[in-house]
Write a protein that binds this DNA or RNA. Structure first.
Lengths: 216, 216
DNA sequence: AACATTGTTGACCGATCGGTCAAAACAATC
DNA sequence: GATTGTTTTGACCGATCGGTCAACAATGTT
């Protein structure tokens, strides 16, 4: 096997795996782990069921792989902030980035939501470990901002949860949102309007005077 | 059959039905419609599977009945407001009531969330009908408040969605929240703190000067 | 006591579940 | 062209799915 053919084969394998992962993400996100069937995933991927198992090993392995892929996409948010950062700028970015991630990976976001709804059987460790530390470390910095008079002295944990929930709502509850708005899907104008609203309310609500809010 | 025995029989029937509904709510809320099995519900209710079907007819009928029961619990919120109402008082009540409902009916709330995640196959009509009209009518009044200078001119729809998402988060994502906080469940102190935070940020963020915020 | 109604439940149905396997198809090396 | 390794896939496995049914208790009603 030459390096060339090896690359070709790996590329082919990757393409098929991506097809399967994409199909599985759709099915799992709609019906959760228990409610999803390998047959439904196979139909979505337009492959025989046995082929799914050949590439992914088992239903559980496929599911865990999807969860990990989604977790990796969420890194690098609020990562490089310090007590010197501008809260308005940082929170503004946070809101826009979270909103963008939800729109970019709607199925992945719903998959995560379904996992949490089920009691997070596969993510308990991650939540109580990595993510807990991440929140705690961000909270320390936000508290420093408050002590420096940059913003109101609100509980940073509730603030983080607020931004998470407010942004995720538009992907995970998209069926409700579009039903109420009477639209097929959220338009670009809607999204811009929502971002602006959330920035306005949350920044102002935290006592942050946005000096240069529109500097993107 | 005397009126007395009729009552007794109906009471017995009701007790069993409530047992089944409660068990089903737990199972459906964790695993969604597809992922829930009648056997799991029967085990939870400590009844033979055939008995579940005797009382409920079918899996779908049981599920729809649970959804309707949950919808009814959500009525009477923001129902009797006018342009003369005090936005601070109304939104404050809205936040507290929503938060309380989520804590009172956690399984029902998760059931609703799972239904929306699946694309709202059983609630599409309700969302695009009743609920859409409800939101639209509330939006009119909130816009009037803004025109009267009682609050900032924010999009009422986004405001309603914000309060929905922020409050529901603590029941539907309870696995994530408790995992991050490192607690078994949210304490009363946590809940009070969260309510206070949400009131502070949302009211202030909407430009509402809470004159008499603590008059409950 | 005889009868009718309602409640209970194990046994069973065809369909589908996640997963295995072997035979065939395919590709690469000698 | 024989050999070796990798994909592909229909057939199949025991278990479980939602749902039916008949036999049987329990409970009025007369």
């Amino acid at each position: 096997m030459t390096a060339d053919t090896a690359n070709q084969e790996n590329a082919s394998r990757d393409r098929i795996e991506q097809t399967i992962l994409s199909a599985a993400e759709q099915v799992f996100s709609q019906h959760g782990y228990r409610g999803a069937s390998l047959q439904a995933i196979a139909d979505q991927a337009k492959l025989p069921k046995a082929n799914i198992l050949y590439y992914m090993g088992s239903k559980q392995a496929l599911y865990v792989r999807l969860l990990n892929r989604m977790m990796n996409r969420w890194n690098a948010v609020l990562e490089d902030i310090t007590e010197d950062s501008d809260p308005g700028q940082v929170l503004s970015d946070f809101i826009r980035t979270k909103m963008m991630l939800g729109q970019r990976y709607p199925e992945g976001s719903k998959l995560f939501a379904a996992e949490i709804l089920a009691g997070a059987p596969f993510l308990k460790e991650y939540l109580a470990g990595e993510l807990k530390e991440w929140v705690a470390s961000r909270a320390v910095i936000i508290r420093q901002w408050a002590q420096l008079g940059k913003m109101d002295d609100v509980d940073p944990r509730w603030l983080i949860f607020l931004i998470w929930s407010a942004t995720q709502h538009y992907t995970e509850y998209s069926a409700q949102v579009t039903g109420i708005l009477g639209e097929e899907a959220l338009s670009e104008a809607d999204l811009a309007s929502i971002c602006q609203f959330l920035e306005h309310v949350i920044l102002k609500g935290c006592g942050i005077t946005s000096s240069n809010a529109t500097s993107h």
